[in-house]
């Protein structure tokens, strides 16, 4: 009995110490991962390969092309929407505006909203929508591209989007996805919930403060 108590005490103490000396909190890296073993200087080194966002070719509300190159060195938040969406989009946009307002003046941060209805959401439609939303500059891009590509890319953001249902509505979930400079997924947040979006804002600050060494691992 006494031994057991002692063991519990030791475990408790060890955990307490670990908590105190632990590194600064970092965000997890989400998505699937693989390991790759390669030879470096005659020694075999195993690396973890994390899921990343593949190359994209889109056009934003200004008619400018948006590729991975334009996003290089940026942390960004992605979501999926369409301008005529009557259901969850307005509340998502209301919440995303909070994110926009928090970071619109800070370098190295972007928001990328993919339209899932490119046929309707042409560049002029997106521009008009952006104007009405009250966003300007190059912090928040509303992008459009081939529908198939968008449906495929959604999967790599762990987001589900579906074709129009019989009622003529697109089904898409309202997640905001946080992507780091290495194009890895660092968080998913329900964009329809104000408190989750507040957490996203905090997490972006944390991710911005993450040292380069930690992110280049």
């Amino acid at each position: 009995m006494r031994k057991l108590l002692a063991a519990i005490l030791v475990i408790l103490l060890w955990n307490a110490c670990k908590f105190n000396t632990g590194n600064k909190k970092t965000l997890p890296i989400l998505g699937s991962r693989q390991t790759a073993t390669k030879m470096v200087n005659g020694q075999s080194v195993t690396d973890t390969i994390y899921q990343t966002i593949p190359a994209i070719h889109y056009i934003n509300q200004y008619g400018d092309s948006v590729t991975n190159k334009n996003l290089e060195g940026n942390i960004y938040v992605a979501d999926f929407f369409f301008t005529t969406c009557p259901s969850i989009c307005p509340i998502m946009q209301r919440n995303m505006l909070n994110v926009y307002n928090a970071f619109k003046d800070s370098a190295g941060f972007k928001i990328v909203s993919y339209t899932i209805d490119p046929q309707h959401d042409s560049v002029p439609v997106l521009k008009k929508y952006a104007d009405k939303l009250g966003i300007s500059g190059n912090t928040w891009w509303l992008v459009q591209g081939p529908k198939d590509a968008t449906y495929t890319i959604a999967k790599s953001y762990l987001v589900s989007v579906e074709e129009k249902n019989p009622a003529g509505e697109y089904i898409h979930d309202g997640f905001f996805i946080l992507i780091d400079k290495q194009k890895r997924i660092r968080g998913t947040y329900d964009g329809t919930k104000a408190e989750e979006v507040s957490k996203l804002i905090e997490d972006i600050k944390m991710l911005k403060a993450e040292p380069a060494s930690a992110t280049s691992k």
Binding site: P86, P90, I91, R94, L97, K132, L133, G134
Partner: peptide, 16 residues
Amino acid sequence: CQNCHGAKGEGLQALM
């Protein structure tokens, strides 16, 4: 109604 018009009836920018 709240999704578009907001919890305080504030609407959404120039959209709603």
